[in-house]
Design a protein around this nucleic acid. Structure first.
Lengths: 211, 211
DNA sequence: GGACAAATGGAGGATGCCCTCCACTTGCCT
DNA sequence: AGGCAAGTGGAGGGCATCCTCCATTTGTCC
């Protein structure tokens, strides 16, 4: 995103390793991983992290920049699709899949980065693009009339609530949920569903004290 | 739940005020409220909390005992309903509503209390009862055949992902989600939906550092 | 090769949380 | 009324987290 310019080569290497470790750990554990953990996994000290990213939030922003761009691209692609329902469905499926396999995604996506206006801009463009997709799907009579833009926020929140012990299970669960909701969103109602996954409710939140 | 017996009257009063404050704060803020906060709102010192409840988990268990019993009762009532779909729907609607207006509910419900076996027993009875309800609704042809018990875990997780700035909005959102999913669960597909609420995605998770 | 700024790492400051300790107070029983 | 166990509150121990400081190392340019 921002300047990674004029860095010494060792610093540059460390920087990319930090971002990679951060992406991995955020995805696996959520945004709660400690800076020390990220530092250890990148093979550097904490000071190096803070030299490169003044705050944890900045690191989060950098780590998820790619994903947010990807979301925007997904919407852009869908806008080029001539089949309105297909486009609508594709966006929901892809974004929810990204959210399902990455425990940090929801937090990063929902978090307003005070300075990273580029990402905010991307997000709002994606949102407007998706609004357009919904309009088209309604116009073609495939999306139910009472669908609201807030319904996708609802969907994202709901999908964000899904947790499982493996990314595969989480993805399966997410797919099922999205399938169910797409089914409910259709003006008529008939589409086959993804299979039901095995879930354990107590994955959803850790016990209060084990924090 | 367990002994509140042979307490001096002032201690008894304090105890009930602690539990009330805990319920209120857990509902409003989630399980993360600090013990100090709960103590302040009950007008007692922290030591009093810990004298009454050896650990925060124990306080959580006590605070939510009523709700878990209520859930079990909801299932029990539904089992007495002759209309299978109605019973099925009623349980989901009521439990999800409880979950929507109480930010601590999901955590408390999902958390395995090491000692409070009574609650665990209630929960598993409720789960078995609900399984029976699903069976009946399938038998009557109203619930789709490929519905799994894991689908209600899925629903609870999804519903648990919903957050809003007021309990009213959260409840509205939850109702909409449940309506959509019930619609998707029906063997045929046709029921009117609750209205769409206004939601803001960034309520779902606080930024990483503002913890 | 040698100088020098850039880069580094780990100790530790600040904060916030759960929970404990203990000197003090207060209701209860006779 | 008076003794005493039950009850209380707030300071602080232990731990985890984000972030800073500074003595030391390391790449780069002449």
């Amino acid at each position: 995103m921002a300047a990674a310019e004029a860095l010494r080569v060792d610093a540059r290497n460390n920087r990319t390793r930090i971002v990679e470790a951060a992406r991995l750990l955020f995805a696996e554990e959520g945004l709660d991983v400690t800076m020390t953990d990220i530092a250890r996994h990148s093979g550097v000290g904490v000071a190096t992290l803070y030299r490169r990213f003044p705050t944890k939030e900045a690191l989060v922003a950098e780590a998820f920049a790619e994903q947010i761009e990807l979301c925007a691209a997904v919407v852009e692609d869908a806008l080029a699709d001539p089949d309105p329902w297909c486009a609508f469905r594709a966006v929901l499926e892809q974004v929810c899949a990204m959210q399902a396999v990455d425990k940090g995604f929801t937090g990063a996506f929902a978090c307003r980065f005070p300075d990273a206006t580029v990402l905010d801009g991307l997000r709002s463009r994606a949102e407007r693009g998706f609004g357009e997709l919904a309009r088209r799907a309604k116009a073609s009579g495939e999306l139910r009339e009472d669908f609201t833009f807030d319904d996708i926020t609802l969907l994202l929140m709901a999908n964000g609530g899904i947790t499982a012990d493996s990314p595969e299970s989480a993805l399966a669960a997410s797919r099922r949920l999205v399938g169910l909701l797409l089914h409910a969103f259709r003006a008529d109602g008939a589409e086959p569903l993804p299979p039901a996954p095995r879930l354990e409710l107590h994955h959803v939140v850790r016990p209060p004290t084990a924090r």
